[in-house]
Structures are given as C-alpha cells and as structure tokens.
Design a protein around this nucleic acid. Structure first.
Lengths: 134, 134
DNA sequence: CTTGACTCCATACCTAGGTCAAGGGTTTAT
DNA sequence: ATAAACCCTTGACCTAGGTATGGAGTCAAG
C-alpha cells in the first residue's frame, strides 16, 4: 500500500488538486502524513473518502453536512439513528425545494401559455402580470 | 407627484436602502434625479419597479435575467415573443432543477426507509450505500 | 546538471445577492 | 443651535464551493 502524492489522489478521485487541498482545509480529509521534504503522502483511503464526498454531494448534501456525517463515522458512540435523522431532515429540505420550484412552475407556466408569442410588447400578459395590480 | 428620498422608497417597496443602491448599481433601476445637495429623488415608479423585481425573483429569475426583461420593456422594437421566449426558457430551467431534486429524492428516500434507525453505526445502510461498491 | 513537472504555502478571485461599516455632509425637530 | 436621523460614497464582508496565481522548493529524466 504505497503512499501517493496529491496529484495522484486528485486524478484517481477525478477532482482538482486544489479541491483536495480545499477539502483538507475544510476538515473533510484528515491531515495526511508528509514526506521528508514536506510533500503530502496519501493512501487509497483518501480517494475513497473523496468519492464518498462527491457521491453525497450529488444527493444535495452540503459540505458542512457531509463533514458532520464523516465525523459520525469516526465516533464509536455514534448510532445509525443519528445518520438516519440527518438523512431524513435533508430529505425534507429537498422536498421543500421541490415544492418551492413547483410553485414557481405553477405560476409561470400559465403565463407562457397565455402569451400570444407575437405582436408588440405593450400589454404582454407576462409582463402585465409581473407588474402587479396597482 | 412629489419626489421622495431613498429611505422612503426602500420602505415603500419593503427592501433595504442598500438593496435599492445595489439595484441601481446593477442597472435594474435608472439613475434617479438628484436634489441640489446630491440626494437621490425618486418617484413612485421606482417603487413599482422594485416590486416588479421582487415578484419576478419569486419566480426564480436571476437579477441578470430580470435586467434583460427590464431592458426589453424599454425598447420600442421589443416583442412579446422575446419575453415569452425568456419565460419559456426559464420554465425549462425550473423543470430541470425539479428533476434534479426529484432524482436526489428518489435516491435518498429508500435509504431513509431501509435504515433501521437504531443500533450502532457499523453497517448503517445509508453510509454503506454512500461508500460505494468498490 | 539542467529542464520540466510536480509540490509547497498563502492569497486572491469567482458567482449571486445582498449587507455592513467608516467617515463625512444635510435636514429636521426641539 | 444642536442633536437625531437621514443621506452620500467607497469598499469590505458574508455564504458555498471551489479555481487561479505566484514565488519557491523538489524530484526524475535525459
């Protein structure tokens, strides 16, 4: 299990070198060991960790939330219930965003349908409705 | 139609004074006239404009897009079709976001359901699935 | 033994939409 | 006539998640 440099890790995890450094600064990656000249030396675990981060990001978790998840992973006393609670709360967050966007869609779609799509701008129903009723 | 100071406009439109200045900087509000001592003097049109901006933001348009809409409003040659095209394209954007979030929900919801919600962290199905299959 | 690729660290920059602070002038009410 | 409340400008700060830059040290190949 040879230890590798940051460039290797970044390529293996398909992220930028700067991103690896950034994750380390954010506390998402543990401080790696160093060579005698100060170069960071990672093992494959670091690659797995970065992939975990990216996959979890794809589910909409923020880096802050991911840091909390990773912290749980390290604790002996942590329970499955804590992870489950975070996931459930995040699921609600996602559903809230979906509802917000659906409200936008519900408000916007009829306007797009009503608009004749031709003719001059005066009394365009879209702009009209945005103007408000004053 | 008395011209009013920025504080009055901000209160009437229910935004911060700084926000009015920011909108002016962003080109969303025209440069107002000034009193002899340099104070901005607005008319009620400014309040209507700010309300237009806030309502349009609620539909998910960015300030950049709103600036484009407002620019159209000022042009003689602008047509309803241009507004309609922007709205339709934004509607697609919204739908894309909804689909992205629905994919997240579809991936996350089963995990929350599967997790027993009790017991130690080892082999929590949520973390497991995020770990990947390597 | 030198050149190019890699690494180090620190710092600045980016988007988006604001918000806050400093230091000064103006207006209004008491 | 003076203090409170308002306005001016410039510029920094904030969240999120990075990306870019620059000067200096290091490592491997030719």
């Amino acid at each position: 299990m040879q230890r590798k440099t940051i460039g290797w890790v970044a390529e293996a995890a398909d992220v930028n070198v700067q991103t690896v450094l950034y994750y380390e600064r954010r506390g998402l990656l543990p401080a790696p060991s160093r060579s005698s000249s100060g170069y960071r030396l990672f093992d494959y675990e670091a690659v797995r960790r970065i992939r975990f981060i990216r996959r979890t990001q794809e589910l909409g978790f923020s880096l802050k939330q991911i840091a909390a998840l990773l912290a749980l992973q390290g604790e002996q006393t942590a329970t499955c219930a804590e992870v489950s609670a975070m996931a459930a709360s995040h699921l609600e967050e996602i559903e809230g965003k979906i509802h917000g966007l659906e409200r936008m869609r519900a408000a916007l779609a009829p306007l797009v349908d009503i608009c004749p799509g031709k003719g001059p701008l005066k009394a365009c129903p879209i702009l009209d409705s945005l103007e408000g009723d004053e």
